[in-house]
Design a protein around this nucleic acid. Structure first.
Lengths: 242, 242
DNA sequence: TTAATCCTATTGTCGGACAATAGCAATATG
DNA sequence: CATATTGCTATTGTCCGACAATAGGATTAA
């Protein structure tokens, strides 16, 4: 006989609200850009009170599935690569990952990204890379903020040019972390701007020539060089990034 | 003159509650594993009502910064790599990334991961890899679930062995996505198990020999082979993963 | 026609209330 | 004495009702 019972489904109501709406989003029943019904409507539909609905909405909000539109109304938004990257890098920081872990990942992934980029970057994207370099060149040598932005923008353009949202999100989360940390050491790294510009120039040449090996090679050097800046600045690579 | 005013800080109270607690966590004032005060306490401390506090808690909950302990009490938890990976892969799925994007990322990143693994895997970890292979070999050939688990477990062990939480999270999120999708096609991929086992064997050999080039090479083949399974199964690689 | 004003729908916050539940203490039972 | 049951208490989950704040649209004034 089987007179025993299954454990009954016992999740808080706000969680069920969250899951229900999440389901409707992932199934496409609630399309990207559509407005969420008002809280009062949701109360009626789910048969719960506004407090409960609102707790569910907070979950959706933090999950990045809904964003505030005009008039505070929520509308549906499927998470973009940049959202994932931002959330991930924040979590990494909170999780206490170290500089060396980030740089290690950077050194592992970006050369291959560069190799791929050599094959895949559009002419327009390569043009953007050159323009970004020109902008950096035009900046004053002691404008460290411009140097950091120029370095990060270059990585960013490569990541975007791969035309792959998964890799974009991953590389972008690395970009966010190195950008934040570069800012703190750039002032102490002599000649950083010149060396960055040189590497970028070589990389663009490789991209133009569609030479993946050379691109990967220069990216390796570029990253090693950036890392050296950290060592010169005597940053403890085993400390957590903030 | 500058008689103009800055835009005043106007964030909802529940958001401020969220940020305040998040701050205390990231600054270390609330240590990992510590219990959060009761809702009533938080009300008193922040000077807001329980509804407001609870909405803030929902944000923290979804952000993965607090988890339910026994007795429903919350305690602090810094996000681990696996949390980040799970959140990211979920977001990728909701964002509608395609099979080919995932496989593209896989093919780009894992060979380099394997190269690194050849240098970095501990003997114990390599032993685990072999044991995982033995377990897969022992499974029945038509036990597709075991095949999928064996394939994913192998990737998982390599990712863990890199001893880098950033890469672990990234590779793990890929693992989650391919695992989920492999499950749907494995039955239609003939001889999949044998070919997987063969690649795994070659990879372990390369790891033992600490030969990064060979490891990267076999990983490339292994992944290409898995991908071919998809093509044989006539999966639309441009469709969104679910 | 444009600018100021009112109106309305919706969100943000409040306060209180009570049921549900987990953990613990007290009690009963053998 | 050991164990099982019961009751107690603190805390969370949910509900209700209320009101201020605000954004947008409608309406009126210029």
């Amino acid at each position: 006989m089987d007179g025993s019972f299954e454990p009954i489904e016992r999740a808080p109501a706000y969680m069920k609200v969250f899951r229900a709406i999440e389901e409707k989003i992932s199934s496409g029943a609630l399309k990207d850009g559509a407005h969420l019904p008002t809280e009062a409507d949701l109360c009626a539909q789910f048969g719960v009170t506004r407090s409960t609905v609102r707790e569910g909405l907070r979950l959706l909000e933090q999950a990045g599935l809904i964003v505030r539109g005009p008039a505070k109304k929520f509308f549906i938004k499927r998470p973009a690569a940049s959202d994932i990257a931002a959330a991930a890098s924040k979590s990494f920081a909170l999780g206490g990952v170290t500089f060396s872990e980030v740089w290690d990942a950077l050194a592992t992934m970006y050369p291959e990204a560069a190799r791929l980029a050599a094959m895949r970057l559009s002419k327009a994207r390569i043009g953007e890379l050159e323009k970004s370099g020109d902008a950096l060149k035009a900046a004053r040598d002691d404008d460290h903020e411009a140097t950091v932005e120029g370095a990060v923008a270059f990585f960013q353009l490569i990541a975007k040019g791969l035309d792959n949202r998964v890799m974009l999100a991953m590389l972008q989360s690395l970009n966010l972390m190195i950008g934040e940390s570069l800012r703190h050491v750039i002032a102490r790294a002599p000649k950083a701007k010149d060396r960055i510009l040189d590497a970028q120039r070589k990389l663009v040449e490789a991209f133009k020539a569609r030479d993946g090996d050379v691109a990967a090679d220069w990216m390796t050097k570029h990253i090693a060089d950036l890392k050296r800046g950290y060592e010169v600045a005597k940053v403890d690579m085993d400390a957590a990034i903030l």
